[in-house]
C-alpha cells in the first residue's frame, strides 16, 4: 500500500520482540518453580548491553560488521511482510525469494562473525549453525512453496495466505513439521545446539560483547518472532478477521500463545546432540517435501 506499512511493520516487530523473550523467560521460570525476571527484563538487558563498550576481540573488520549485517538483513525481511493482511509498500518489488534471501543472509552473517572471531568454540558453533541452516532452510522454503502451489503466485501476501487455502492432509502434515522445526528456528531445547551454553558457551556469540552482542540478541529475538508470526499467518491465517486492527490484535495473541508453547517444550527437554538432531532434521525435510507433493496432487 504505502510507506506507513513498512514503518508499522518495523515498529511492531522491534517493540514486541524483546517482550516475547520476556514471556519465554517467565514461562520457563514458572516451570522451573522460580520467580523469574520481570517481563520487561529483555529490554533492560538490551539497554544495558548497548551502554557497554564494544570489544573487538578478533580485531577483524568482519567481526564488527557481522552483527550489523545480521540485524539489518532481518529488519529488511521484516519490512517486507504483509502484516495484518496489507501487503507492504515494498511488496511489489519483492517476493518469497527476497524474504528467504534476507533470512539466510542474517544466518550467514552470524556465521562469518563467528568464523572471524577465531575462537574454537565459535567455530564449532558456526559449523553446527551451518548444518542447521542447510537442513532447516528447506523446511521454511517448502512451507512457503506450499502456499505458492495453492495461490500460483510468488508474492508474499498470496503465498502466505495460500498455505492454509486448502486444509487437507498436506496442510496438517506441513503444520506438524513446521511446529517441530519451529523449536529449531527459535533455537530452544531440544534444538538449541548451535548455542549450547554448557558445551560451547553460546557458540557463535562467545566473543561478542556490548552493543554488538545486543544486536545479535535483538536479531535472534526478531527472528523468533518472525518464525512464530509466519506460523500464525500461514497456518492459522484463515482465522484472522478482515479489519486490520482486530487482525493485528488477534495475530499478536496467537503469537503469544505460540511462544508459551515453545517455552513449555523448551523447558521440558534436554538438548539433543548434533548427530541426533541431524537425523531428525532429515526426517523433517523429507516430510515437508512429501507435503508439497501432496499439495500438488491437491490433497
Amino acid at each position: 500500500m504505502n510507506a506507513t506499512a513498512v514503518v508499522i511493520n518495523l515498529i511492531y516487530f522491534l517493540a514486541l520482540a524483546p517482550f516475547l523473550e520476556g514471556v519465554m523467560r517467565k514461562v520457563t521460570a514458572r516451570i522451573q518453580s522460580r520467580q523469574g525476571p520481570p517481563l520487561y527484563q529483555p529490554y533492560l538487558d538490551l539497554l544495558k548491553l548497548l551502554g557497554k563498550e564494544n570489544l573487538n576481540a578478533a580485531g577483524h573488520p568482519v567481526f564488527r560488521l557481522a552483527p550489523l549485517l545480521a540485524f539489518a538483513s532481518v529488519l529488511s525481511a521484516v519490512a517486507l511482510l504483509p502484516l495484518a493482511g496489507w501487503s507492504s509498500f515494498l511488496a511489489h518489488s519483492s517476493d518469497l525469494m527476497t524474504l528467504i534471501y534476507f533470512l539466510t543472509l542474517s544466518g550467514f552473517s552470524i556465521l562469518i562473525g563467528a568464523l572471524a572471531s577465531g575462537n574454537p568454540f565459535a567455530s564449532v558453533g558456526a559449523s553446527r549453525e551451518m548444518m542447521t541452516i542447510i537442513m532447516l532452510e528447506p523446511v521454511l522454503a517448502m512451507t512457503l512453496i506450499l502456499g505458492v502451489v495453492s495461490s500460483g503466485s510468488l508474492s508474499l501476501l498470496p503465498a502466505t495466505a495460500g498455505v492454509s487455502a486448502t486444509r487437507g492432509f498436506s496442510y496438517f502434515l506441513m503444520m506438524a513439521v513446521y511446529l517441530v522445526a519451529l523449536q529449531a528456528f527459535v533455537s530452544r531445547q531440544p534444538f538449541d545446539i548451535p548455542e549450547a551454553e554448557v558445551e560451547i558457551l553460546e557458540g557463535p556469540y562467545v566473543e561478542y560483547s556490548g552493543p554488538n552482542y545486543a544486536l545479535f540478541r535483538y536479531t535472534l529475538n526478531l527472528k523468533r518472532m518472525f518464525y512464530s508470526w509466519l506460523f500464525v499467518v500461514g497456518f492459522l491465517g484463515f482465522l484472522l478477521p478482515e479489519g486490520p486492527v482486530l487482525n493485528l490484535v488477534i495475530q499478536t495473541g496467537l503469537v503469544l500463545v505460540l511462544f508459551v508453547l515453545i517455552s513449555v517444550v523448551g523447558a521440558t527437554h534436554p538438548r539433543f546432540r548434533m548427530d541426533q538432531a541431524l537425523k531428525f532434521y532429515a526426517g523433517l525435510v523429507m516430510l515437508s517435501l512429501l507435503a508439497v507433493g501432496l499439495r500438488v496432487k491437491g490433497w
Binding site: R30, I31, Q32, S33, R34, Q35, V264, T268
Partner: peptide, 19 residues
C-alpha cells in the same frame, strides 16, 4: 511423561524467595 513433568513443576509452585 511431559505432562507429568509439568505437573511436578506446577504442584511445587514458585519456591524461590524474593530475596
Amino acid at each position: 511423561n511431559k505432562i507429568k513433568q509439568l505437573a511436578i513443576s506446577f504442584r511445587a509452585g514458585v519456591v524461590t524467595l524474593r530475596y
